[in-house]
Design a protein around this nucleic acid. Structure first.
Lengths: 364, 364
DNA sequence: ATGAAAGCGCTAACAG
DNA sequence: CTGTTAGCGCTTTCAT
């Protein structure tokens, strides 16, 4: 079954069939109806690759991600793919690890497939790798990257906003000895979170001795290891902020092993707000960063770029916001606990009571 | 840059370039080298769609899944996609919900794309939907389905094996009042789990009043609701088996809200063994079903089918096994707890000590 | 508004 | 073993 057959059956030319299928408005309604009838009758499905070849438009976007096992990503993939379906784009999904050879392979795949645009939501280690797309005139959208160029735009995330709330929240509860468990060193977004943490601490005059800055890797195992290290310190932190929720889960898990109660003995704050966060025990206080928003921004950015021939969103419109979501993994520092009815605790109790497990309420 | 250009630069015919690129062994090494040199020099990437059109082989497999947010699926997607990369296949991923219109749309996409095979790891509600692929001569691999046909093979999962271990484990701990929280009614694999549970209970002479058979939906929210219902019963169960881990998380979370201690007041068993299971508090005892194995079986099945023109694996080779993994969400029933050093408990303590958070050790 | 025909980039007979 | 060439199925000028 091909376009010729349809043309023959509908007694029109292949051009008319093509136009009808593509909804070109100038086709005679009579003919169009005839075509559609045949199409439906024989169950004709136009061949995508032939279409692509003929038109020079593949209608494929590439999506490069890492940490696919991070619960953070499925959401992004789903949103991206579904938007693709809606707009008749196909998504070429490629998970990559840290290995730059993998990235190269991914890029090759994308180019062979003649993708019309690429969203890179991952390790953007070597900028030169991104160049390969630029050389091929393929628009690229990267998250958290400093790479610039006419064919590469950046989706910025305002880590500071949420991080500041997290830090100030802990400070308000009386914590001064606050630790940070970072992500993989070569992951841009992880580095940015760490910097944000340090700056926010400095803002309020708190300093973080290097021993409280421990390296994680955005996995639960990494979080456990970090907690083990932290527990070994002579001057243990009373609160810890994690570079992502997975890490926080590991930290809490190890604290449990060590018989430390969260939040009584240790306040824990995560980052990402994966769906699971509210189901943890205790429900995790974390900085929310909408996965859907990221995927949508990326997709719409590419779409506008490609279809309207204009650069996507103004530099500032593409900024993703972050916000602290209060739940129950943080509590007053021990030295503040004498006075159990301090206004702070009262307030928090109220605020939290409202939240429980329903929709996360943002920290004002 | 196309094959003609390369041919010109390498002073050979396009046929030779094509053969070289496809590693046809009969090409003169001298010419081949010349071709490769040019290819590398100009950074030539053959056009996938033209290739597909010319050869009549798309090298695309379809992957239809649901519950993409279930942590169970990323693993499957990743494995499937990576195997695809390794074998030079592209994966057309389509998440579908319960809505059969979505399934239709997915099928259309796949057919337009001329996929060479489809793996359906989801709601296989109406078998007629699967027929659409058969009509188009597209091989289909379905999980947990009764659909038969020359072009549709089934990947079977042996739910009984793991479920029996779960049931007998609880029974051995002294539980008799065991509840089961099921998954969506129209999900084949969920129905199969429920049946397996009921049969395994019957095997050991335990009966399950219908009030202990509560309907979940494979989400954490569903688990919470189920637990709420269970807690309201005059004759509360002392143990509950869940149709999947997500449900178990919800159950545990709600138990926590109700001040019920898991496992002391309630033993909980999950199903799937998602990576997270071992990081829960308490670490979840669950029936493991290898996500990787499923994805691999599906992919290799399609691959062999397509490349070797022979039906994939013998009916029995494609069976996925399940196994109970003991962790710490189950404990002796209250009435057995008088004698705290019962052999059973001793044994379990030892076995569990071995596990902690390392690789899950299967229940012998 | 419609049709004829020339590609799109590659593969695969077929002939040499 | 290599080159010539006719498709693959669709889109898109260019006439009409």
């Amino acid at each position: 079954m091909n376009i010729k057959e349809i043309a023959k059956l509908a007694k029109v030319s292949t051009a008319t069939v093509s136009r009808t299928l593509n909804r070109v408005p100038t086709v005679d309604p009579i003919l169009a109806r005839r075509v559609w009838r045949v199409v439906r009758q024989v169950g004709y499905y136009p061949n995508t690759q032939a279409r692509a070849l003929g038109s020079g438009r593949s209608r494929v976007f590439g999506l490069i991600i890492s940490e696919i096992s991070n619960p953070f990503f499925p959401q992004i993939v789903e949103t991206f793919v579904c938007l693709g379906m809606k707009h008749n784009y196909e998504i070429l999904l490629t998970p990559v690890s840290e290995d730059s050879r993998e990235f190269e392979a991914a890029a090759r795949r994308m180019i062979e497939r003649r993708v019309e645009g690429v969203a890179i939501l991952t390790f953007a280690k070597s900028d030169s790798l991104i160049q390969v797309f630029g050389n091929r005139k393929v628009p690229v959208l990267v998250i958290d990257s400093a790479v610039r160029g006419p064919l590469v735009k950046t989706i910025r995330v305002d880590y500071h906003h949420g991080m500041r709330q997290a830090v100030q929240h802990l400070a308000a509860l009386g914590h001064v000895h606050i630790s940070f468990v970072s992500g993989p060193a070569n992951l841009q977004s992880a580095a940015a979170r760490k910097v944000a943490f340090q700056e926010c601490m400095k803002e309020i005059g708190l300093n973080t001795p290097s021993e409280l800055l421990v390296q994680g890797n955005h996995t639960m195992e990494g979080g456990m290891r970090a907690m083990t290290d932290l527990a070994g310190l002579r001057n243990r932190p009373s609160a810890v902020i994690c570079s992502n929720d997975l890490t926080a889960i590991g930290v809490i898990r190890e604290a449990f092993e060590l018989a430390l109660d969260v939040p009584r003995d240790l306040s824990v704050v995560g980052f990402d707000d994966i769906r699971l966060a509210q189901f943890l025990i205790p429900p995790l206080t974390t900085v929310q960063m909408s996965q859907t928003a990221i995927a949508e921004t990326a997709f719409r950015g590419l779409l506008e770029w490609v279809e309207c021939e204009r650069s996507p969103f103004s530099p500032e419109a593409g900024v993703i916001k972050t916000n602290l979501v209060l739940r129950r993994s943080t509590a007053l520092a021990a030295h503040r606990r004498m006075n159990t009815t301090s206004p702070t605790e009262q307030e928090l109790a109220t605020e939290r009571g409202r939240e429980r497990t329903e929709t996360p309420s943002a920290f004002a």
